[in-house]
Design a protein around this nucleic acid. Structure first.
Lengths: 204, 204, 204, 204
DNA sequence: ATCTAATCGAGACGGTACGTCGAGTCTTCCC
DNA sequence: GGGAAGACTCGACGTACCGTCTCGATTAGAT
């Protein structure tokens, strides 16, 4: 699956070799764009290949030529859409970095892309390929990057603190509120969460 | 929606008034049972009404007579299946209560009902009725009950601790691992999580 | 195939036994009717299942529930449409009977059903099932009936005349003009053909 | 249409005028050859342009550059394939000439080219261009030639015999058996047919 | 002991999306 | 300016599931 999802990325790097008509990169863009728009407007189960094709001004067969099914389309759209987002803060102050990380993420989860995340996590529950792709494209890279940022400050923390657990404790409540929806996601909430965890890891 | 989901429950309390043939409570049981079995075996998107009907030895019209759509069937099945589970511990020791709560919940989330939770949270992302029902049937009652248990010990905690936030911090990581699946849910994990939060809320 | 094509006929004789909702005979009629209309208006290769369904006010799944593919639909339509047509003349005069047979057939082949015949013979060239069905439903019964009519007069004919060959010589030129279209089919043509064959078989 | 179908022929006669690379006559040959092979092996509806192109080692655009659609390809293939076949017999004896004509034609219709004829007649039923092309390329030339051969013997025939009708009576039964398939085409059949017609036209 | 009304099973119905395939067009590189 | 390669739009294919519907058969309370 991973292989199926990545060639377009490779294709960008080595875009054109053979003799035939080259891939219409504009059509690819329109399809990815259209899939996100339909998702935001109609919700995940209404994301139809016909709907994407119509909105993108493309044909269904073009979609199926490049992606095995609509989940693959949307994962690639997610990756493209998110790729450059959320640069990690580096203020020199761990607590402040944590606070800003969560605030940034909340901003993303309360913006127009929220439905994309909800949609993918939903799809991941019944499709292991989507689940693995979501982890490897979005979750893991961000965690790894955040972890490497925190490790520089580990000497400030109480002995034996498991940073993986800290990552969970920071991000899980945001996903939780996004997915369960008991209460809204606000900057105040993430600040309070930061304080709680900061106390928990003995930050000083 | 809530009204639409609950009549069967009411029907049990006031089972029979009119003249006609009474509802076949056995068929109801078989349908609910079958829906859970299909969910566990085939995953949420493969839960079709035809599949439920066939496995239950019932007919589709019986399903649609009593439930407005398949989500309602599955929610009721979830409620029935979970109702009596997870009695809250009361050891007289808050930290131990918390630890046991999480351990019990992990046991549930790693058992055969895990797929039910995943399925419902997935469905809730695109169906507000399912979302609301999941919250009101499962999430809120448990939170309220757990909160009332914790409030007795609030004097032991650092001033200003928000118990709602603590509930999120406790449960959200379990949902997170269930839904994202980066790492498995283990008792050791919940114990470490308990320790982290315990430090965070200044427990003593 | 033959089995697949005939059950509706049987179903008419023993229409309803089971408990479920009975087949909508009106929908069946509308579908058969629509398939002939589409055939006449748009030509065989434009007979689309979607087109039939739309015109019939039925759904595609209803078509595919009862017929394995559109050829089967059209064969049944052909049989229904043709069933009662072309009663054979019986004037007591063989030559006159032959002449009227051909005239009647020409009337059919120059009427609105001509396209149906052309369509089926075309389809039969690449689909043995259609070919066999066309023979068994239309060609053979009519030949057998016509033969039995002629055999009564065999004593009037030259010795050794092969009636099967006579049948071919009578009907083949009509199909030929229908399919090849070099010249139109007219009553005068069939009368001249009758004369030619009548001379050939030594009729007196 | 006729104009559209003929240019390749003209191109052979006036092969090269413009500046660019001349037409690859080998590719043309391979395409025509491949179309016949596919037709014989897979039947008319399975003759796809992709299949022809692949087997010919050509590209689809080469096909569409020289022929307006696949029917045109196949008609030209038919003409090429048949052109030199079936020289008309001239024994000096009309009856024998007729007998041999039919025998030769039966030989063609029972050989590997039978599918080509069936395929074209099928296609002609819904495509007037194919129909006209089939008539003008194959049917008419042969009829005219055969007619001119028979006219030399007209004085031997009964007065008022319509030679066009005789041609129909001779050839139609062969097409009929080819297309309807009730009984096989054999030399004995054509001999019996010759006898029947010979009697009909008062041959002596 | 009917009669009436609501239930049950079975299963056909109109829709709608799926993922595939072929037709005919277009666009690039190579000769 | 061909020709091979191959991507493009369009539209039909046959399948599957949804939620609705109409049957005959069953099972009560009401008459």
């Amino acid at each position: 699956m991973s292989a199926l999802l990545h060639p377009p990325q490779d294709a960008e790097l080595a875009p054109q070799r053979g003799r035939g008509r080259p891939r219409d990169t504009d059509a690819r863009t329109r399809i990815l764009q259209a899939s996100l728009e339909v998702l935001e407007e109609a919700g995940y189960p209404n994301v139809t290949c016909d709907a994407i094709a119509e909105r993108a001004g493309a044909s269904k067969s073009t979609i199926y030529r490049w992606w095995p099914h609509k989940e693959a389309v949307m994962l690639e759209a997610l990756r493209e859409s998110i790729a450059q987002e959320l640069p990690f803060p580096d203020t020199g102050n761990l607590r402040e970095d944590m606070r800003l990380q969560l605030r940034n993420f909340v901003k993303l989860l309360t913006g127009p892309r929220a439905g994309v995340f909800k949609g993918f996590i939903a799809a991941a529950q019944s499709d292991p390929q989507v689940a693995e792709a979501f982890r490897s494209i979005w979750v893991k890279p961000r965690r790894d990057y955040a972890l490497s940022g925190m490790e520089r400050y580990q000497h400030l923390l109480r002995d034996g603190v498991d940073l993986q657990l800290v990552m969970d404790a920071m991000y899980a409540p945001l996903y939780y509120r996004l997915l369960i929806g008991l209460a809204p996601l606000t900057p105040e909430y993430t600040d309070a969460l930061t304080d709680l965890i900061w106390s928990g890891i003995g930050g000083s």
